[in-house]
């Protein structure tokens, strides 16, 4: 009967959708299990713990990047925010009169968040009001902010890094008895952002704008405000990641974030959020983070030359982006087909 076949067809595609949406997780699981069995040193408690901590801190940054990506944009400036946050927060905690006081850490954190918000706001204004493409706006802010970080480091640091951070801060380094703290923080941020995107008005507006800003505007969505907020979020997330990366390294490092971008963009793209906007989310980014960090871990344990890390990651990103394009094209074709049938 026509209706059952139609329902049958729809049910099949629901299962298809489930597999497609979580494909990366399955692939990751496969790699993970194989690594457990075959790679020496992978299954140790130490390795698993450090893997989780690495995932946690990367997740915060990658979640941040997910937001502008949902609108088909990008944020190159996150790495420089991490640079500046690391440089200035360490300075505050070690070289100012606040050293040793109970205010050192809170002030450092607040200032860091303010930096992230400020950079995010500038990017947001550039994209939403000045109509600049995000890749070039965030590129220029990246150059300016990383330059400022270097200038600051030149002025105030004796070497390229500044250690001696207070214990209350380095407790976040993902080691020792409280190793799980970064993981807990990341989990909290993840849950909040997931809720934000899937269950709130704001989240729905983000997806709507990412799919079609003109329709969204006419339907009463404040498009410019939404676009602005995406950059703001990535800026603030970058600063949070910067704080945790600094704690992890136990020092303020002027060039801390410089090579991290490929991990951020890799997590987002491999995870399945479309670089064209309108689909994806932090759940996908979580999968991407797990995958990217697993690859790094595997390459590391296998002793692969560090120069090839980026190459390997790059190839995976290419595959993921290509796959996303192909499935998108297939979905569009299926839609045309279905519209003919629906008459």
């Amino acid at each position: 009967m026509a209706s059952t076949t139609k329902n049958g067809k729809l049910r099949a595609s629901k299962v298809q959708k489930l597999i497609a949406n979580n494909a990366i997780l399955f692939i990751w699981l496969l790699f993970f299990v194989v690594s457990l069995i075959t790679i020496k040193g992978f299954a140790s408690l130490y390795n698993i713990k450090s893997y989780l901590v690495n995932c946690a801190v990367l997740l915060i940054a990658a979640i941040g990047l997910t937001f502008p990506t949902l609108n088909g944009g990008i944020d190159f400036s996150m790495t420089s925010v991490i640079d500046l946050v690391s440089t200035i927060s360490a300075y505050i905690m070690v070289l100012t009169s606040l050293k040793g006081s109970v205010w050192a850490i809170p002030v450092a954190i607040v200032v860091s968040l303010a930096i992230g918000a400020a950079v995010g706001a500038i990017n947001g204004l550039a994209v939403s009001r000045l109509k600049m493409p995000s890749f070039v706006a965030t590129l220029s802010t990246m150059m300016i902010i990383s330059g400022i970080a270097v200038w600051f480091g030149n002025r105030h640091y004796e070497k390229v890094s500044l250690s001696g951070l207070p214990d209350g801060f380095t407790v976040l380094n993902g080691k020792g008895a409280l190793w799980f703290l970064p993981v807990v923080i990341a989990a909290g941020i993840f849950l909040y952002c997931h809720w934000l995107l899937t269950r709130t008005l704001f989240g729905r507006r983000i997806y709507s704008v990412g799919v079609n800003p003109r329709t969204s505007e006419i339907s009463g969505i404040p498009v410019k405000k939404v676009v602005f907020s995406l950059s703001l979020i990535s800026g603030v997330m970058a600063s949070m990641a910067g704080i945790l990366y600094t704690a992890k390294n136990g020092a303020g490092i002027v060039t801390l974030g410089d090579d991290m971008f490929i991990n951020f963009v890799g997590s987002v793209v491999i995870g399945g959020t479309s670089p064209m906007g309108g689909s994806g989310g932090v759940k996908q980014t979580l999968y991407g983070v797990l995958f990217v960090m697993l690859i790094s871990n595997i390459l590391n344990l296998l002793g692969v030359n560090y120069t090839m890390y980026d190459v390997v990651k790059g190839v995976f990103i290419l595959l993921a982006a290509g796959l996303e394009l192909v499935t998108r094209r297939m979905n569009e074709k299926a839609a045309v087909l279905a519209s003919k049938e629906a008459g």
Binding site: S208, N212, R214, T215, S216, G278, E332
Partner: peptide, 17 residues
């Protein structure tokens, strides 16, 4: 181009405004 979110579900489109 301006009335619908084509790749989004019927339900998403109806609730939009």
């Amino acid at each position: 181009g301006e009335g619908l979110l084509m790749p989004k579900s019927v339900s998403d489109n109806i609730i939009m405004v």
